[in-house]
Computed example of a mutant assay.
Amino acid sequence: MEIIRSKEFTASRAWGAKDISNMNGITTRLHWTNEPYQWHINDGEEVFAVLDGQVEMRYREEGQEKTVLLETGDIFFASAGTEHVAHPVGEARILVVESEGSV
Results as ranks from 00 to 15, higher is better:
residue 25 G to Q: 09
residue 25 G to V: 10
residue 26 I to Y: 06
residue 26 I to Q: 04
residue 26 I to C: 01
residue 29 R to D: 09
residue 31 H to F: 15
residue 31 H to W: 07
residue 32 W to C: 03
residue 33 T to A: 14
residue 34 N to G: 05
residue 38 Q to C: 07
residue 40 H to T: 12
residue 42 N to Y: 04
residue 42 N to L: 06
residue 42 N to T: 13
residue 43 D to R: 15
residue 44 G to D: 10
residue 44 G to Y: 02
residue 45 E to P: 03
residue 45 E to L: 07
residue 46 E to W: 00
residue 46 E to T: 08
residue 46 E to F: 00
residue 46 E to I: 00
residue 47 V to L: 13
residue 47 V to I: 13
residue 48 F to W: 09
residue 50 V to E: 08
residue 52 D to T: 04
residue 53 G to T: 02
residue 54 Q to H: 11
residue 56 E to F: 00
residue 57 M to N: 05
residue 57 M to P: 04
residue 57 M to G: 05
residue 61 E to T: 11
residue 63 G to Q: 05
residue 64 Q to A: 13
residue 65 E to T: 12
residue 65 E to Q: 13
residue 65 E to K: 07
residue 67 T to F: 01
residue 67 T to S: 12
residue 69 L to N: 10
residue 70 L to I: 02
residue 71 E to D: 13
residue 71 E to I: 00
residue 72 T to L: 02
residue 74 D to K: 06
residue 74 D to A: 09
residue 74 D to S: 11
residue 74 D to F: 03
residue 75 I to D: 04
residue 76 F to H: 11
residue 76 F to K: 13
residue 77 F to L: 11
residue 79 S to L: 04
residue 80 A to I: 06
residue 81 G to Q: 07
residue 82 T to S: 06
residue 83 E to I: 03
residue 83 E to W: 01
residue 85 V to F: 01
residue 86 A to E: 01
residue 87 H to E: 09
residue 87 H to K: 15
residue 87 H to V: 10
residue 88 P to Y: 07
residue 90 G to N: 12
residue 90 G to A: 11
residue 90 G to L: 11
residue 91 E to L: 05
residue 92 A to N: 01
residue 92 A to M: 05
residue 92 A to L: 03
residue 92 A to T: 02
residue 93 R to H: 08
residue 94 I to E: 05
residue 94 I to N: 05
